[in-house]
Write a protein that binds this DNA or RNA. Structure first.
Lengths: 347, 347
DNA sequence: GGGCATCCTTGACACGATTCAGTTCTCAGG
DNA sequence: CCTGAGAACTGAATCGTGTCAAGGATGCCC
């Protein structure tokens, strides 16, 4: 009984002895159809193995029941946790999700945005590679709603859900300062990522408050926020003459911090005795690291859920929707990697 | 100049002073159009900000340029690495990918497969929750090509790309046996996952070869392959009377192993001195763990690339395609977590 | 039995792109 | 000047579904 791949609403209609319109009603407005007819149609659908053609449906309706999610890095647990939050909220609302990974690459981001445009998705959740607000507003002009994810919108016209990255940077560095460190390396990049710039700005702020200037906070730039980039940064860190060397490192995310930790350990530098280490995101692996990692925690799943809820609201009732910029507060989680600091003369 | 959201091929045609057919040709068979006309049409497309409607195109063509990928757990780095391999291969072939996360849940898997059917994707890469071959063959009857991922097909009719999980289990346990362990706990589940059963079977095999029976390999069942489930398993492990306690633990994946490691450490059990630990997958975080984890390495990215290449072949030239079951070999990576074993009397 | 309201069902058109048979144009060759 | 071939373009039919005005059936009431 293997049905051919071309079972359309027409076949169902003729099998059930009704018109195509009635079949369509059974699918979309069952209340309009008598229960007897409905049962007959459903039986026919079952027997023929009919599956509605999404393309035709979408073409007719003019819109799809699909949303897009574009993240910076699928391999970063921060984003997969965030994606889970999104998926849960979207799924229960009966919408489908197209999950895209820009990998921090502008070209790929553009390609995926084009794909989403062609698919006529109703909305997009995105952590853009750089300040893409112009491009995103253009998406909106096409009727595609946009919510920024893990990125604060400067534009009051755009919903966004983010965590206060400046504050996060402040918390991290203030903690290291209190532990007596006076020379702290910032490891992060690329600089085009707003998260990186904001966390750095917060770090600078904390230094300034402590009466130190930026020369006490050297920035080790990385090409990506990955474990490999962290290992590399550790090597560069150790390349500096010992007397200039920072006694603590603040990393723009946990993957970098884990990489730095590996690099340091390999060179027999002890953490935290020789160099203290603070990461960012508090991914699950941070607590399980060789030296449990002090990190700045963000409400990952909640971030995703909130953003998805905002997007659903905007999609479903655009008229009543008021754009808002939700900002969560980060929280410092202190663990082994920054305890028992090296005592050092100030200045 | 904000274009309304309804720019169709018709608008482009009238702006460029040609027929709709010509615009279509510019998009799909540029060679059929004179270069002057082509330039005019492209200019019109640009000015109007026209983006082809994927739904209409697909409806007419009968097929989409889209593939689906269904994995067991996005939060597991093994699967995101695998996804990266898939994405690279698919992307360079100019196809789009819909990335789905079944989360080990049959219902969600079904929902996503329905979604992919409605989208009329050309093919699906899937790590099924259980033995879904019947359902998958039905997909194929609809003209949707299927390749199994990280799962060997028993059905010669289905392509699959996998790693020899039995062998992996053997390697892991044989290593522990050589180190002198005689009572080894297997932590893994749910049992419906073939990966879990195969790794267990390999473990049993190694025990048998060593003249031990299955009572020396107690199975601690877990509801999922996650860090949290691992922590929980550690608690149960320690609940057993000390004289019955296993001296080594083999986990069905690294997330579990990291969880077990956390649980043991919290109870002041030393790894590997008190209990040795071996994981599976060799995710990046395994090497960076509190105690660097011995693990069974799988060629993750290559797995994804190979599977994607097979699927592309099947999609593009179904006639010439011969189904094949590719099986990679796993490799044991020994690290701290299983070194310097507890010396124990055999038996 | 006629009038009327209610409830179901029908059938034709529309969505936007592709396809292909057919038309127009150009130009070389006789 | 005519013919034929080939290139370039046109226009209408088509894919599978949703929508909606209109039609049919049924039951109720006077």
């Amino acid at each position: 009984m293997r049905e051919s791949s071309v079972v359309s609403i027409r076949d169902v209609a003729s099998r059930a002895g009704v018109s195509m319109g009635t079949v369509s009603n059974v699918l979309n407005q069952p209340d309009l159809v008598s229960s007897a007819t409905r049962a007959r149609v459903l039986a026919a659908i079952d027997e023929l193995g009919f599956v509605p053609n999404h393309a035709a449906r979408q073409l007719r309706r003019g819109r799809s029941r699909t949303l897009g999610l574009v993240v910076l890095d699928v391999a970063n647990p921060f984003f997969t946790d965030l994606a889970k939050g999104v998926e849960d909220t979207i799924g229960t609302a009966g919408m489908a999700l197209i999950f895209c990974n820009s990998d921090g690459d502008q070209t790929r981001e553009d390609a995926y945005l084009d794909l989403l445009k062609e698919q006529r998705v109703q909305g997009v959740l995105i952590t853009p590679v750089d300040d893409a607000s112009a491009r995103l507003l253009r998406l909106r002009d096409r009727g595609i709603h946009v919510v920024l994810l893990d990125r604060r919108s400067r534009n009051a016209d755009l919903c966004s859900v983010s965590v206060d990255d400046r504050l996060g940077g402040e918390l991290a560095v203030r903690h290291l300062l209190e532990a007596g460190h006076r020379r702290i390396a910032f490891v992060g990049g690329p600089g085009r990522l707003e998260q990186v710039r904001d966390r750095h700005a917060g770090a600078v702020q904390a230094m300034t408050e402590a009466g130190l200037d930026e020369t006490s906070l050297p920035w080790l730039d990385t090409p990506a926020l990955t474990v490999a980039a962290g290992r590399d940064a550790a090597a560069r860190l150790l390349g500096a003459p010992r007397e200039n060397r920072a006694t603590a490192v603040f990393c723009a995310n946990d993957l970098l911090a884990l990489g730095v930790l590996q690099g340091l350990t390999q060179q027999r530098i002890r953490v935290p005795e020789d160099i203290a280490l603070v990461g960012y995101d508090d991914i699950d692996f941070a607590a399980a690291a060789a030296v449990p990692l002090t990190s700045v925690r963000q409400p990952r799943q909640r971030l995703g859920q909130t953003a998805a809820a905002l997007l659903l609201g905007e999609v479903n009732e655009p008229a009543e929707h008021r754009h808002q910029q939700v900002v969560f507060e980060p929280e410092l989680v202190v663990r082994e990697s920054s305890r028992r600091p090296t005592a050092q003369p100030a200045g």
